[in-house]
Structure formats: C-alpha cells, structure tokens
Amino acid sequence: MNLETALKEAMTIDGAIGVALVDYESGMSLGALGGGRGLDLEVAAAGNTEVVRAKVRTLTTLDIDDAIEDILITLGRQYHLIRPLTASRGTLFLYIALDRSRANLALARHGLKRIEAALDV
C-alpha cells in the first residue's frame, strides 16, 4: 500500500481527525491528511517527534532491549496515537489524532497496526 492510500485508510478509522507519517530524526512529515483549524499536523508531527525521541533515549538509557509498539496520549477530548514503524523501515512513525467521543481505541490501534503492515515506504 502506498503512502497516499495508507493515509486515506487511516482517516476511515472511527473518530479520525488527522493522520501523518513522520520521520522522527528530522521531525518532518512525509505525508499528512486531515487536521484543520483545531489540529495543525505539521506542529503535531514536530512535537510528537520529541516524544518518540525521548522514549527511544529512555529505553537506551535503561538498557531495555525492546521496541515501542505504540504511544498513547490521552486528552480530555482526543486520543493521540503514535505507532513507530518496524525497525526495518528506519525512523518513521504513524501519528493519528482521534475524537475521543467517536473513537474506539482498541480498534484504532488494530487499524494502525494493519496499515503499518501493508504500508510500502
């Protein structure tokens, strides 16, 4: 699945507000869809880059030999889900913001996992 298709598919997840594929080394978004007045995806991509970098540093410092499956940030009205792609695909992560009142977190996690598996970057 190409990037455009993956982003469109992610936006079909119930409650999706915006989605992006981000390189956490550069902080740059390789593609984004959705967002808008309430969610600037470029700012979110850059900010979540710092979250991923911090967690990777922490795992290294603690000498934990494991990989991040996903990172969840829970807000009052939104979920922000970060899913690093497998190590074979470098330093990329999928980021999705969800409207908490319309989203099913378990299904969203499953959906991102499925999209990650099919994504050809």
Rank of each mutant, 00 (worst) to 15 (best):
M1H: 11
A118F: 06
T91Q: 14
I96P: 13
G35N: 06
L30W: 13
A44P: 04
V19L: 01
I73H: 12
L119G: 08
A46F: 09
G18F: 00
D65V: 00
D23T: 00
L72M: 12
T60F: 02
I17E: 13
L62N: 11
L94R: 08
Y24A: 00
G111D: 11
I64W: 05
Q78K: 15
L75Q: 03
V51S: 14
R100M: 07
A67S: 15
L94H: 03
I115N: 12
Y24V: 04
A108I: 11
G31V: 05
A20E: 09
D63I: 00
A118M: 11
V121M: 14
V52R: 12
I71G: 07
A6V: 03
M28I: 10
L21P: 10
V22E: 01
E69H: 14
H80Q: 13
A46P: 01
H110V: 10
M28H: 11
E69D: 15
Y95Q: 11
E4C: 06
V121F: 13
N48A: 01
V56H: 12
T60V: 11
V22P: 05
T58Q: 13
T86E: 13
P84M: 08
E4A: 14
I71S: 03
V121G: 06
T91E: 06
A20W: 02
L94P: 08
L92C: 04
R53E: 02
A44Q: 09
Y79A: 03
S88F: 06
G35D: 04
V56C: 11
L3E: 03
I73C: 07
D14S: 14
L112P: 10
G36D: 02
L75Y: 11
G90S: 08
R53P: 09
D99C: 00
E25C: 02
N2L: 03
R89T: 04
G36S: 09
Y79T: 03
I68M: 13
I71H: 03
T86L: 14
G31C: 09
T60N: 15
S26R: 11
G31M: 08
H80E: 07
L72A: 01
F93N: 07
S88L: 13
A103G: 02
L119I: 05
A118S: 13
I96Q: 11
